[in-house]
Design a protein around this nucleic acid. Structure first.
Lengths: 137, 137
DNA sequence: TCTAGTTAGTACAGTTTCGAACTAGTTCCG
DNA sequence: CGGAACTAGTTCGAAACTGTACTAACTAGA
C-alpha cells in the first residue's frame, strides 16, 4: 500500500520529463529553448531577473543568458525601474505573450492526454495538494 | 472551476525541483552530481548505456560521460556482454549500491518532510492520483 | 553626510553538455 | 557466405551553462 517517497519522486519526475520532451518540437517551432520557456512563462509573476533566478532555482548568470536570448527574439523587453535603477523590470511583448500562451497550450495538451484519464475532481485535489506541498518552507 | 493542466505541470515541476535542490548538498557529500545520480539510480533497471539514454531521455553522448565518471568513482563497472560484444553491461559496485541507497534515502527524506506536513488523507490522495497518471503509456 | 554592508545584473572563463561523425559488432536477406 | 542496413558506444568540437568576480546602486547606522 505504501509507496517509497523516492520512488514516487522518481516516477513523477519521469512523467514530467516525458510530457516536456513531447513538447520539445512545438517549443522549437515557436523559437523557444526549454529553459527559455521556463523563464518566459514566469516573467509575468516574477518580473525581475533576480526574482526569476530565485523562483526557478536557476543561477543568476543563466537567467542573464536566457533573458538576453528572449530579448533578442523580441519576446521580452527590459524597462528601467524608477524606484531602483539596478533593476531591470522585464515585460512581455505581444509576441512574447503569444509564444508563451502557445507553449503553455502545447504543454497542457500533452499533459491533458494523461489527465483525461482521471476524474475532474481529482485534478482539483491534485492542484490543492501540490499547492499545499509548495507552501512548505 | 477549471484546472489548467499546464499549471499543474508547472506546480509539480517546481515541487520536484525544490526537493531535488534540497538534496544537492547530500548528493555532493556522496560524491554524486545530480545527473550522475539519475544514472546511478537507474542502472539496475536499465543496465546498458543505450537503454539508460532512452529511459532517462538524455543524449547518448551524455550517458557516456556520466558512466565514465561513475566508473572513475568506483560506483559502477563495465562488463562485456558475451551475447553482444558492442554492449557494455553496467554493474553497480558495493560502493555504488551504498551511494545509490543513501542518495535515494536523502531524496525520500526530503520529499517525506513535505508529505508529512499535509493531511494523511491528502497524502493517500496524491499517491493514488500520481499512480493513476503514471500507469498511462 | 559618510561608509560599510548588501543587492541587481553582467562579464568572463572554465566546465559541462551534446549533435554529428565515427568505429566496431550485429542482423537480415539474397 | 557477402554486404547493406542497423545498433552500441565513443570521440570530438562547438555550444550551453554557471561559479566567481566585478560594477553600479541601494540601505542602514553613526
Amino acid at each position: 500500500m505504501s509507496v517509497d517517497a523516492a520512488q514516487l519522486w522518481t516516477l513523477n519526475h519521469r512523467l514530467l520529463t516525458v510530457v516536456l520532451h513531447a513538447c520539445g518540437p512545438e517549443l522549437a517551432e515557436l523559437g523557444l529553448e526549454t529553459k527559455e520557456f521556463f523563464v518566459l512563462a514566469e516573467v509575468t509573476a516574477s518580473p525581475y531577473p533576480a526574482e526569476l533566478a530565485a523562483t526557478l532555482m536557476i543561477p543568476k548568470a543563466s537567467v542573464t543568458a536566457y533573458v538576453r536570448n528572449l530579448v533578442a527574439k523580441g519576446f521580452v523587453r527590459r524597462e528601467i525601474d524608477d524606484a531602483d535603477l539596478r533593476r531591470h523590470r522585464l515585460v512581455l511583448t505581444a509576441d512574447g505573450e503569444a509564444a508563451r500562451d502557445r507553449a503553455l497550450a502545447a504543454l497542457a495538451t500533452e499533459f491533458d492526454r494523461r489527465l483525461a484519464r482521471i476524474a475532474p475532481r481529482d485534478r482539483t485535489e491534485l492542484q490543492r495538494i501540490l499547492l499545499a506541498l509548495l507552501a512548505i518552507d
